[in-house]
């Protein structure tokens, strides 16, 4: 028996996790996958394509390439920054735009979206 299984909340972490905690871990996982993506890009591509690649690249690939050597601490930091950014964006967007609500499935409205 694991120590964490003494807590019912921890034993069912996938169900009991808070939305913010989940967003943080999901952001860390995204950063880990991006780092693996940077690891998967062949650096010789830059040598072959040179300036043309640099001009048409949006900067994304360069950032991802830098992530290939990142360690866990850096991934955790990047994940927390990403999670904070998403949270702020949700709050700001939520203040200006009303989210759409689906109409009840048995409702009589023709358009199944209520504004």
């Amino acid at each position: 028996m694991r120590l964490i299984h003494r807590s019912p909340r921890a034993a069912n972490a996938v169900r009991t996790v808070s939305p913010s905690g989940e967003l943080f871990v999901a952001s860390v996982v995204m950063c880990m996958i991006l780092a693996a993506f940077g690891d998967a890009v062949d650096p010789t591509v830059f040598g072959e394509l040179g300036l043309e690649y640099a001009i048409f690249d949006l900067g994304g690939e360069f950032s991802v390439l830098a992530m290939r050597h990142w360690d866990l601490l850096q991934l955790l930091l990047a994940g927390s920054v990403l999670a904070t950014g998403i949270m702020v964006l949700r709050i700001v967007v939520g203040a200006f735009y009303q989210p759409l609500e689906p109409a009840p499935p048995q409702g009589v409205e023709k358009v199944p979206i209520k504004l």
Binding site: L3, I4, R6, S7, R9, A10, N12, A13, V14, T16, V17, S18, G21, E22, F24, V25, V28, V29, M32, A36, L72, L75
Partner: peptide, 28 residues
Amino acid sequence: GSKLVIKLVDRYPSVILLGGAVLAWTAY
């Protein structure tokens, strides 16, 4: 400090998810 660990994971179950992600990263 097992009680402390239990309190921590009980308050923040996301630690378990993070542990799973770190295990997957280690496996990779």
